[in-house]
Design a protein around this nucleic acid. Sequence first.
DNA 1: CCTACCGATCGGTAGG
DNA 2: CCTACCGATCGGTAGG
Lengths: 196, 196
Amino acid sequence: MTAPARRGRPGHSLDSLLDTAVAVFIERGYEATSMDTLAERLGVTKSAIYHHVRSKTELLELALDRALDGLFAVLDDAGSGPAVDRLETVVRGSVRVLTSELPFVTLLLRVRGNSEVESRALQRRREFDRVVTELVRACVAEGSVRPDVDPALTSRLLFGTVNSLTEWYRPDGGLSADDLADGLVTTLFSGLRGTP
Amino acid sequence: MTAPARRGRPGHSLDSLLDTAVAVFIERGYEATSMDTLAERLGVTKSAIYHHVRSKTELLELALDRALDGLFAVLDDAGSGPAVDRLETVVRGSVRVLTSELPFVTLLLRVRGNSEVESRALQRRREFDRVVTELVRACVAEGSVRPDVDPALTSRLLFGTVNSLTEWYRPDGGLSADDLADGLVTTLFSGLRGTP
DNA sequence: CCTACCGATCGGTAGG
DNA sequence: CCTACCGATCGGTAGG
């Protein structure tokens, strides 16, 4: 038996398509990116993209789910022990996901809820934030986090700091993900002034 | 003598035009916002907007300059004294500008350098960051900020935290700008764990 | 000559 | 994976 004739060229996998799409979405913004621009960057026609996905929206959805699945897996890693240790595990895990899936998390953090897909992603983000706020509350209850700042504010500042890494961190920039996590945990937990 | 007949209606000032434009740019993204959308939101025709500004780009430029001028004024307020006091003044001043000019700073932080105007805004932001990094270095030199974290990382985390406020802070949400600044300064300078 | 607009339309490009 | 298209909308400008 002969091998079945290939129709069309091998071209791109869904994964490599997604990588390029996310890179362009970050560069130019999701809405400002046309499928023609995307096709040009991939070196294929616009219609070739529609072979892999049904819509521009589906590309966005795949990218956002990848970031969110990574972040939620972090919560499962922090199962037991003192709340403050679980909090540190969540912070370090978030830094790890953020650095390893940087473009996907970057895109997630830029989503503003302007469509059904974006709204669902925002809802999952809010659920993540809610769990972390509960964890900060547990830390305050066990006496391991200061009680004089509202736990809701504390957790917002905490993840504001972690999420801001997408604005400047580059994996090839000489700062390893582990060193970054160490510096961030030290600064956040013990403060700028120095060790207690 | 009769009063001269008014030709055209009083309509909008440049300031109110800018307020609305920035609100829509934040909602939908700058590039994704058409001048027709803007005109619809203002209740005037597209041509009426071009009476006040020459281009969509000029609207963006006016908005970004307003945010940047506010931030640079903060550096002038922190003129003398120990570096750590100047740093706290800069942080509190940044929080004040961020809350009082929230939409303009929010727009500034979303700019990615996709045009001449955006690139110039990014350059001014980098200059601001450079001054703050120098200030952190001075704090380390005088012994008021921990030396075991790189000053460049410290200042990035510092302003990552401050800038992340645009993601959730709302002036009408029950948390005053002063209380916010207090909580943020306490958390950043003394850490999550508690007072030294 | 000014300020503050309007109704209509230009040449090109969007996602599908 | 391509060619050949669609209904609609883009930023910007004309005369009055």
